[in-house]
């Protein structure tokens, strides 16, 4: 093992004998573009709604529930897709979330939520993961579209305006504290703060 490692270290630390510097630098540059581009393309392919609802767990449960809500159908036709809310847009956060998602691949392979009943049994736990994530990043995925700076309180109902101009303005509360279950059904809310 040590011998083998030393051999490769020698190759790496000594100048190239057969390949020109131009080939190595330009080739490395091109290969870099191809690999990085390929990586990003693959990553973005997993960041689409088609990919998300490729699993029946997502298509038959959460996706169907979303269809009647305002985040799917509304007067202006602007809608949110799964990754808009469930995957951070910032690159490092996105990578962290994608790594966490390996647990979801595990769940898919072993059928953790492969029936409606199993999904319902896990719903509270899964929902809490999302609430915790949004609570920790101050509802960043909500705010990607719903920017507090540009909210027109005069166009809101009195009730909404009074809540937003106090609790949200002061930072006492963040979006997810009040707006739980806006796009999917809620789990049993026993013991959840504010319910």
């Amino acid at each position: 093992m040590k011998e083998w490692f030393r051999k490769y270290l020698k190759v790496l630390t000594r100048p190239s004998v057969h390949y020109s510097l131009g080939f190595l630098t330009l080739g490395g540059f091109l290969a870099g573009i191809i690999f990085w581009g390929g990586f990003n393309t693959a990553l973005e392919a997993t960041n689409t709604e088609e990919f998300c609802i490729g699993c029946h767990e997502m298509e038959n449960n959460v996706y169907q529930e979303m269809k009647t809500t305002i985040h799917y159908t509304n007067r202006s036709g602007v809608r949110a897709t799964c990754p808009d809310c469930h995957v951070p847009h910032n690159w490092t956060d996105k990578m962290a979330r994608k790594m966490q998602a390996s647990k979801e691949v595990w769940g898919k392979i072993f059928g953790t939520i492969n029936t409606r009943e199993k999904f319902e049994a896990q719903r509270r736990r899964l929902a809490e993961h999302e609430w915790d994530r949004l609570k920790a990043n101050d509802s960043l995925e909500c705010r990607n579209c719903h920017n507090f700076e540009y909210m027109d309180f005069t166009a809101q109902s009195d009730r909404a305006a009074s809540m937003h101009s106090t609790y949200l303005e002061k930072g006492e509360k963040t979006c997810i504290d009040c707006h739980k279950g806006i796009a999917h059904e809620l789990p049993d809310m026993k013991g959840v703060e504010g319910w």
């Binding site: 809500t69 109902s157 009730r159 279950g181 806006i182 059904e185 809620l186 049993d188 809310m189 319910w195």
Partner: peptide, 12 residues
């Protein structure tokens, strides 16, 4: 007030 999508069922 508007009650669109207000969930009232066994769970909540």
């Amino acid at each position: 007030h508007n009650i669109r999508d207000y969930e009232v069922d066994l769970k909540v």
